[in-house]
Computed example of a mutant assay.
Amino acid sequence: MSQTTTFSVDGMTCGNCVRHVTEELTAIPGVTDVQVDLVAGGSSPVTVTSDGPIADEAVAAAVDEAGYAVTPKGSLL
């Protein structure tokens, strides 16, 4: 059964930023889709669809690897 998780990431400014975050998140086992609604220079909503539950720590680590951080107000923190 598919599961979605939505959170926000601060600091992305362009399509290249979105690509980096998307690549890192899709590398997590079980992730089937990543959608980013870019808010250049603001807090961008990110929705991850997966085959099952994904650990918050795995998502935060993937975003960190891309060079960004989950927004403190996001559902992951």
Rank of each mutant, 00 (worst) to 15 (best):
Q3R: 15
Q3D: 14
T4D: 12
T5P: 01
T6I: 05
T6A: 09
S8F: 13
V9D: 05
V9Q: 02
G11F: 05
G11R: 01
C14F: 09
G15H: 06
N16I: 10
N16Q: 13
C17A: 06
C17G: 04
V18R: 01
V18I: 04
H20L: 09
H20S: 13
V21K: 01
T22I: 07
T22S: 12
E23C: 00
E24L: 03
L25G: 01
L25E: 05
L25W: 06
A27L: 06
I28E: 02
I28S: 03
P29E: 15
P29L: 13
P29S: 15
G30N: 13
G30E: 12
G30W: 07
V31D: 01
T32W: 06
T32H: 08
D33R: 14
D33N: 14
V34M: 04
V34A: 05
Q35F: 00
Q35N: 05
V36P: 00
V36F: 00
V36D: 01
D37M: 00
D37P: 00
L38D: 03
V39Y: 03
A40C: 08
A40M: 12
A40H: 08
A40E: 11
G42R: 08
S44V: 02
P45F: 12
P45Y: 09
V46E: 02
T49D: 07
T49A: 12
S50L: 04
G52E: 15
G52F: 11
G52K: 14
P53W: 10
I54A: 07
A55Y: 07
A55I: 07
E57V: 14
E57P: 10
E57L: 12
E57F: 10
E57D: 15
A58H: 13
A58T: 14
V59S: 02
V59A: 06
A60N: 12
A60L: 13
A60H: 10
A61N: 15
A62D: 04
A62R: 03
A66K: 06
G67E: 11
G67I: 03
G67F: 09
Y68E: 04
V70H: 00
T71R: 13
P72D: 13
K73G: 13
G74M: 07
S75A: 12
S75N: 08
S75M: 05
L76C: 11
L77I: 14
L77D: 15
